[in-house]
Design a binder for these strands. Structure first.
Lengths: 359, 359
DNA sequence: CTGAAAGCGCTTACAG
DNA sequence: CTGAAAGCGCTTACAG
C-alpha cells in the first residue's frame, strides 16, 4: 500500500546495501560481516579491515530495525499520552513530568518515544510504538489500553491512576492535597467559593469521577463537610486545563455569580483566572482569592505569586521511570508509590475582601 | 549479553506467541493468520473468525518490530537533540519548538522519538533510533552526524544550522534579529553594554563561531560598527543557556564592571539577569536595561515585561516537520526556509539611568 | 479461498 | 578463524 518500491526502507529509489552485499564485495560470508561489527575479536585483523573497508565503500550500516527485532530490545521508553503532542508540549505540567522521566532515560541511555492517541484512540497507538516499556498517563487499570499492553507482554507503569494489585503505579495524595487547599480557603473565611475543575471527559457520565479527580473531589468534600457545607454549596465549573479556558470560565463566573474565592484544580487554570480578574480590574487577592494546584515553577514568578498545592511532578516522572525499569528487568513486580502533597501559601489568597463585590 | 532467555521480547519468562502458534491452534497456515489481521477480505468469515478466536485465546498480537521491518516504515519521527532529555524538557524554547513539530506529527499520525546524545555523543545515538526521518537541531552540514544520516539513507532536515545545498534546512534571520536588538540598545544611548551570550561549546576553539551564533555576532558587530564601536567594546560573557547561569553571570558582571545594559542572547538568560538585578535591589530598566532573544510566552508575563527579539519558534518546528515529511515522500528535494525575526519593545529597556550606578 | 515459499536484514550457536 | 544454517516474526506475491 505504500509507495516503497522494494520494501527496502523509507527511501524509495535506490535500495540500501545489506550485509549480503558487503559479504560479496569482501569475499566473505554474511556472518563474517556481522562479526566485523559485533564481535571483531573473532576475526583476523586483515579480514576485519577488508570487511569494514567494503562496508565503508558501499555505505553499509546494519539496519536498526533488524537489530532490534533480533535483540528483542529497542532501548526506547514509551510514554502513552492522553492528549495530542501539541497540547502535551504546550503544557508546563508535562514539561515537568517529562523532565523527571528524561532524567532516568538519560542515565539509562534510552530514547523517549512520545505516543499520543492515534485517530483519537490511545488503544490504536499502541501497536505502532516500538518500545521496551510504557509509562501510561491518566488511565485506570480496567481500561482497554492496559489489557492490550498486558496482552503484548510490554511492561508498563500507571501514573495518576489508582493503586491496584498486579499493576505498578505511581500516585499522588490528591485527596489530601485537595482537602488542604479547600481547608485553607475555608479557614480564611470564604463561603462563596467557585471550584474551577478539570473536565473529566466523556467517561464521566457513565462511571462518575475516577482516579485523581475523584480523590480531589473527595478531599474537597471532606473539607467542606467540616464546615457544615457540601459540594452543592460550591459553584462548580469543569473545563479543559488550559490558561484560556481558565480565563473564560473565570470571566463567566464573575459575570453570573461572583465568588469571593476561586479554587482551581490546576495552576494553569488559576493563571487564566488571575488573568481574568486583572482584565476585569479586580485585585487578587484583595477582591478575589485564587488558588491553584500543582505548583509549577511559574507559580512563584507570576504576580501575585500563587497559593497552591505542591505535588512533586518531576519526582513523579522519575519514580515512574524507575519503577518501569525495574519492571523491565524483573517481571511480576508490581510496586506502588504514593507521593505526598502540601499546601504552599503565597500571595494570591487572603480573607474575603470588603470591597463591595458582594454582588 | 542481555538477560533475555529466548530473544523473544523484553519479558524474559514466558515467550510471546507467534503467528505460527496461532496457525497451529486454528489449523491453518501462517499466511492465513496474517491475512486475518491484514486482509480479512481474503478469508472466509468462518476461517477468519476461527483464527481471530485462536489469536484471542493465545493473546497473540502481531509483533510491532517485525511489522516495521517488513514495512520499512516506523510511523515515527525523530528529533536529534544536542542535549540531555532532562535539559531539553526543562527548556521552554524546546517546549515551543516541539509544539510545532508535534502539530505536524499529530496531523500525520506519527509518534515522536526524542533522541538525546548517547554517552555524550549524538553520533552514537543514531543507530538506536527507529524512525522514518530526523529533525536535527543545531548541527552544521559538515558534521559527522549528518554524514551518518546520509549513509543510512534516512531523510533529515537541519534546524538552526546554515543553508547548504543538498541539505534541507530551516533557519532564522539571526543576523537581522541580533542587529535589531543591539541597534535598539545603542539608540537608547547605551554605551557600556554587556553581551550575555550562549556558550559556543568545545568546537568553538577550533572553528570559531558557527551557525546561528556566528550570525548573531555578525549582526551585533554591524550594529556596533554603525556607532563607531566594535565587539571589543563590549563586556562578553558566555554561559550555558539556563536561568541560573544568567543569574550568576549578571551578578558577576555587576560586581566587576557594571554595564548600563545587558543584552542577552536568550530570554532564559535575560530572566536570570533580571532576577539578579532584583536580588541586588536594582530596578529594570531604571538602573539597568535587560533585553532577551526568542520571545518565549513567559516574556510578556513576567515583570518587567521583556524587550526581546521575536522568532517564531513554533513555526520553526512546524516548518521543519513539514519539510521532513515532504523529503520522506519525495527524495532529492532540498528546500530551505528562512524565517524572519523582529524586535518587540516592552518594559525592560530604557535610556541609561541617572541613578548613579556609573561605576 | 488457501498454503508453501521467499524475503524484510540481522545475529549467533554450531560444525568445521 | 570461517561458513552454512536456523531463527528473530511478519507479510505478500504466487501457484493451486
Amino acid at each position: 500500500m505504500s509507495s516503497i518500491s522494494s520494501g527496502a526502507g523509507p527511501r524509495g529509489g535506490r535500495t540500501r546495501p545489506t550485509a549480503n552485499d558487503v559479504a560479496k564485495a569482501a569475499g566473505v560470508s554474511r556472518s563474517a560481516v556481522s562479526f566485523a561489527f559485533n564481535s571483531p575479536e573473532k576475526l583476523s585483523t586483515a579480514t576485519r579491515d577488508r570487511i569494514l573497508a567494503a562496508a565503508q565503500e558501499l555505505s553499509y550500516v546494519p539496519n536498526t530495525l533488524a537489530r532490534m527485532l533480533k535483540a528483542g530490545q529497542t532501548q526506547s521508553l514509551g510514554v502513552l499520552l492522553p492528549q495530542n503532542l501539541a497540547k502535551v508540549m504546550e503544557n508546563p505540567y508535562y514539561a515537568r513530568f517529562l523532565t523527571g522521566v528524561g532524567q532516568v532515560c538519560d542515565e539509562q541511555g534510552y530514547t523517549l518515544l512520545l505516543t499520543p492517541p492515534l485517530r483519537d484512540s490511545m488503544l490504536k497507538a499502541i501497536p505502532y510504538a516500538a518500545v521496551d516499556g510504557f509509562i501510561v498517563c491518566g488511565l485506570e487499570h480496567d481500561r482497554g489500553e492496559v489489557a492490550e499492553l498486558r496482552r503484548r507482554g510490554i511492561p508498563f507503569v500507571l501514573v495518576d491512576s489508582s493503586p491496584h494489585q498486579d499493576v505498578s503505579s505511581v500516585d499522588v495524595d490528591d485527596e489530601g492535597g485537595a482537602y488542604e487547599v479547600m481547608r485553607h480557603v475555608l479557614d480564611l473565611g470564604h463561603r462563596r467559593i467557585a471550584l474551577l475543575s478539570i473536565d473529566p471527559g466523556p467517561e464521566h457520565a457513565e462511571r462518575g469521577y475516577r482516579g485523581p479527580l475523584a480523590r480531589r473531589i473527595a478531599g474537597i468534600t471532606r473539607a467542606l463537610g467540616e464546615s457544615g457545607m457540601g459540594l452543592g454549596d460550591l459553584e462548580l465549573v469543569e473545563v479543559p486545563a488550559t490558561r484560556m479556558d481558565g480565563f473564560r470560565a473565570a470571566k463567566a463566573l464573575m459575570a453570573s455569580a461572583p465568588p469571593t474565592a476561586v479554587v482551581a484544580m490546576s495552576d494553569i487554570l488559576a493563571f487564566g483566572a488571575v488573568d481574568a480578574m486583572h482584565d476585569l480590574g479586580l485585585n487578587v487577592p484583595g477582591d478575589v482569592t485564587v488558588t491553584g494546584y500543582d505548583d509549577l515553577p511559574e507559580s512563584s514568578w507570576t504576580r501575585p505569586r500563587l497559593t497552591t498545592i505542591r505535588q512533586a511532578i518531576t519526582t513523579k516522572g522519575r519514580t515512574a521511570a524507575d519503577l518501569l525499569f525495574s519492571a523491565m528487568r524483573d517481571e511480576d513486580q508490581h510496586p506502588h508509590q504514593l507521593l505526598g502533597t502540601h499546601l504552599v501559601v503565597r500571595d494570591s489568597s487572603s480573607r474575603p475582601g470588603r470591597t463591595g463585590l458582594s454582588g
